[in-house]
Each structure stands twice: as C-alpha cells, then as structure tokens.
Design a protein around this nucleic acid. Structure first.
Ligand code: SF4
Ligand code: SF4
Lengths: 145, 145
DNA sequence: ATTAAATAAGAATAAATAGTCTTAAATATG
DNA sequence: CATATTTAAGACTATTTATTCTTATTTAAT
C-alpha cells in the first residue's frame, strides 16, 4: 500500500530533521540535511525547490545560505507538505478508477473509500511538524538509527 | 492517494462484472469481459493469468472456454484479490519509507499508520465479491454508466 | 574583482509500471 | 485431420516516476 511517492517521503523526512534539529534563525544547508538523512543531495534539492515555491520553505543562496521554514513548525501540517508534493487532487483519488464516475450513483466501494480518505486527510491536517518533532526529541520515536 | 495499481483496479472491476453477471456454470470469455468493462483485452488476460495462478479463477482454453470463479463469490474477499495482484507484502508498507526501520522504537507516524493499514486490511478482508455484486444488482450502486 | 559556497533550473538517464503484440498451446467441432 | 476459438507465455514498447548530472545564478568574503 504505497500511499506516498518517494518525493513526499523524502520531503517529510527532511523537514522533520530540520524541525528536530533547529538552527536558530540560520539557514540550514541542503547538503547537511541530505548527508544526515542519507538522501541524494540533488533529489532533495529538487524536492525543496517545490516546497519553497509552495511557501513552506524559504531559501537563500550563497555562503551560509540554505533553507529555513517559512512558517512556524506548529503551523506546518503534514497535509500542507503532502498537497504541495503530491498535488492538490491527492484526496480526490478513486479506489477503483472507474471512468466517468458519478457520485450520484457511486461504485460499490465508494462509501468505504470516502471515509478512509477523510480519516487520512483529517489526520494529516491535524498533525504538525512540531508535534512529530517533539516525539523525536522526547526520544519516544526515532528518525533513523 | 493512489492505493492500488492499475492491475488491481482492473482486476477487481472485471471480477465484479463476472459476479454481477453470472453465467451458470459456464466459462465467460475474457474478450466479453474486456469489451463490456472497456478494458484492454491483452492486459486483462495478463491480469487474469495472475488470478488463475493464485487460485481465484479457473480457466479453460478453446471454443466456449474462458474464465470462471474458482470459489464461490461469497468466499472471495477483496483482500484475496489485492494480495494476489499487489503481492503479499502489501500491508507491510511503511508510510515514510525509512531504511532500517525498527518497530522497537518506530518513527513518529507509525502509530497512526499501523491503525490506518489495519482498518483497510480489515475492510478488505470482510468484503466479499458477492457483497459488492449484490449492491450492484440492487442498483444501489453501479459498475459503469 | 575573484573566488568559493550555496540554491535554481532543467536536461539526461535509469528504473518501475502500464500496456501492446506475437507466437504457442489447448480444445471443440465438422 | 483441419479449422476456429480461446487462454498462456513472454517479448516488446510506452509512459510515468525516480534519480543523477550539468550549467546558471546569487551571495559573502577577501
Ligand atoms: S464512486 Fe467509486 S469510482 Fe467513483 S470515486 Fe468513489 S470509489 Fe471511485
Ligand atoms: S515505524 Fe515508521 S518507518 Fe517503520 S514501518 Fe512504521 S511508519 Fe514506517
């Protein structure tokens, strides 16, 4: 059950690293994040460009440049990140992919699927990066070995 | 949120057609199913071979041959079809795809993800093809326009 | 100015998934 | 036996997703 693309997985993991290891008002270099999280620098750079253009990150070029959260970690929800990286139609998906689907008389799995999607969306929209980072820093949970 | 591959989507749709349009003890040709469900004949044939080798369908070659359910529609669960077509590790997936994940101290989204996957698995394992086909035949729901 | 350090942009390549096509094998019927 | 019908098998092609690479631009420091 592959819910997220590699792009989203890496993006979320990298953001969690940033939030769990804050660098007071400074920019953090993509190279450092990629190295610490064992991700491809070039791929992560591409992912971060998307997050920057979606207002989740700010970036700054040149020496001592890098990326920083554009908003507080409390106000960035998993939903924001997923929509930015998967597209805004992420929760419009159809389980069976029928062509010409009409909600008027839906297909036999729609009732279930509607609820499953709503639950996921609900969880994503109620989970902030800071909530997850708190768990990491409380050592209840880990980002990597 | 793409939960299923095209292979699974088409496979489920085609099976539902078969169950909703039973042909008493006879084999139904893949060509007919593909035509009625507007699927590629060759692709559907490939998918059905997988279902046949997994004991969900029986097949028979030659004139008046085709495919037929290998078990009663009451006893074929959505879960059986999904595992046959997506692989038995379908529900072992990881939301964030961390390498070297240890459940001992899981990553920050694991508690939620575990429950979401269990819910989906539960629903699939409690939903039979006949249950869905009944809804179709009661016209509460539709397979296509 | 020059250099070094960083992200931006997007082309190029690789891998995975989806879909098509060709040939072979099985079976029924005349 | 000859032919038509149908699935089996797998090679082939196309599309999408993932990843890497190259070049350009911005910025700080000397
Ligand atoms: S009704 Fe069925 S086909 Fe339409 S969106 Fe819902 S799950 Fe998909
Ligand atoms: S603990 Fe996290 S990394 Fe491990 S399987 Fe669960 S979701 Fe994935």
């Amino acid at each position: 059950m592959k819910a997220l693309s590699q792009t989203s997985k890496y993006g979320i993991r990298a953001l969690l690293y940033m939030v769990a290891n804050p660098s007071q008002g400074e920019y953090m270099s993509i190279g450092e994040i990629a190295k610490e999280m064992d991700l491809s620098f070039h791929f992560l750079t591409k992912i971060f460009r998307e997050l920057t253009s979606n207002g989740i990150l700010n970036s700054y070029r040149g020496p001592a440049g890098g990326v920083a959260l554009a908003k507080s970690a409390e106000s960035i929800m998993l939903l924001d990140v997923v929509l930015a990286l998967e597209g805004n139609d992420y929760f419009d998906s159809c389980l069976l992919g029928f062509p010409r689907c009409g909600i008027a008389k839906p297909c036999p799995v729609h009732e279930f699927w509607k609820v499953a999607k709503a639950d996921l969306k609900d969880h994503f929209s109620n989970t902030s990066l800071s909530q997850l980072a708190e768990k990491i820093n409380a050592d209840e949970v880990r980002l990597y070995d």
